[in-house]
Design a protein around this nucleic acid. Structure first.
Length: 284
DNA sequence: CCAGTGCCCTGGAGGC
DNA sequence: TGCCTCCAGGGCACTG
């Protein structure tokens, strides 16, 4: 599932592949992917040039000529590929952006969860998902003191708070489990019970882990590949995600898997413990 | 305002 | 081999 490191890797790949290309035609094969009216989406894109590709959290922002931005979220399994126009269109391709040089940017998504929205550049905040995003974890906007203050405002568990994108942007299920293990914090600890020392540890772990994952080209669990079709390598550096029943690398206790807010959650039961007086609302 | 639940989707895994 | 059921999950709409 694409989280910040995967989306950043896709962004870098796409930048090299499509920036500078001029759009000649667009096909929308599964209209639900595009939140705009399909016809308007196609008409507005035709004739534009891709000038840059930015990223905010897990959102890709295609900057187009004429002050338009196409916002794209890959959700679970969205992928972009650059093809020649005469190559056969694969089964799960839902949007095709054709360029004047006879290449095509194709969006494929097995689960069809991904979304694209075309809007005026500068009005990205009209999208509720972007409007509510917390700071970029790898930018100077992400400060320990502010992070700690934000955590103190939430009674719900730390895993849910890290996942919901308001406190910090870009973390998904995999990296949440990893940074909580690195910081030895139980996923069900209420966020307002995280100490300042723990917040410092978590803040450092988030930055270090995301940097390493970006450098490794992201994590490939089931389907993720970058814009060049290459898998990431960071799955070999995961400590808890997908390692249920295997020994913790630090202490040897067996990694446990529970459900938190409907998400599979992996942790070390020996090192990531709840304080004796904290809520034991363990959802099994 | 907040927490909880269901929805969107399909392929893969497991049971029989 | 085949059919059925269940599960994975990011973000959002809806409910209480």
């Amino acid at each position: 599932m694409p989280e910040l490191p995967e989306v950043e890797t896709v962004r870098r790949g796409l930048k090299a592949l499509v920036v500078g290309k001029k759009i000649v035609d667009v096909q929308v094969l599964w209209p639900k992917i595009v939140t705009n009216d399909s016809e308007e989406f196609k008409q507005q894109l035709a004739g534009r040039t891709i000038e840059a590709i930015d990223r905010r959290g897990k959102y890709l922002l295609f900057r187009l000529s004429g002050h338009l931005t196409m916002v794209s979220h890959l959700r679970m399994e969205g992928r972009y590929f650059l093809n020649q126009s005469d190559e056969p269109v694969t089964k799960h391709t839902h949007v095709i952006i054709a360029f004047t040089d006879r290449t095509q940017l194709r969006y494929a998504d097995v689960r069809k969860f991904g979304r694209m929205t075309l809007l005026k550049t500068g009005q990205e905040n009209q999208l509720s998902g972007i409007h509510a995003l917390g700071p970029e974890p790898l930018s100077p906007d992400f400060q320990v003191a502010d992070f700690y203050q934000r955590l103190q405002k939430h009674k719900k568990n730390i895993k849910a708070v890290l996942l919901d994108q308001h406190t910090v942007a870009g973390l998904g299920n995999i990296y949440c489990d990893e940074v909580l293990w690195l910081s030895k914090i139980h996923p069900l600890l209420p966020a307002n019970r995280v100490t300042f020392t723990q917040a410092q540890s978590l803040h450092a772990a988030i930055q270090a882990e995301l940097k390493k994952a970006v450098a490794a080209g992201g994590t490939t669990i089931r389907s993720y590949v970058d814009a060049n079709g290459d898998s990431g390598h960071f799955q070999f550096n995961l400590h808890v995600y997908g390692r249920e029943g295997q020994p913790c690398e630090r202490c040897g206790a067996l990694i446990q898997k529970i459900k938190v807010g409907g998400r599979g959650t992996h942790f070390c039961p020996q090192e990531q413990v709840l304080p004796a007086d904290s809520t034991m609302a363990v959802i099994q």
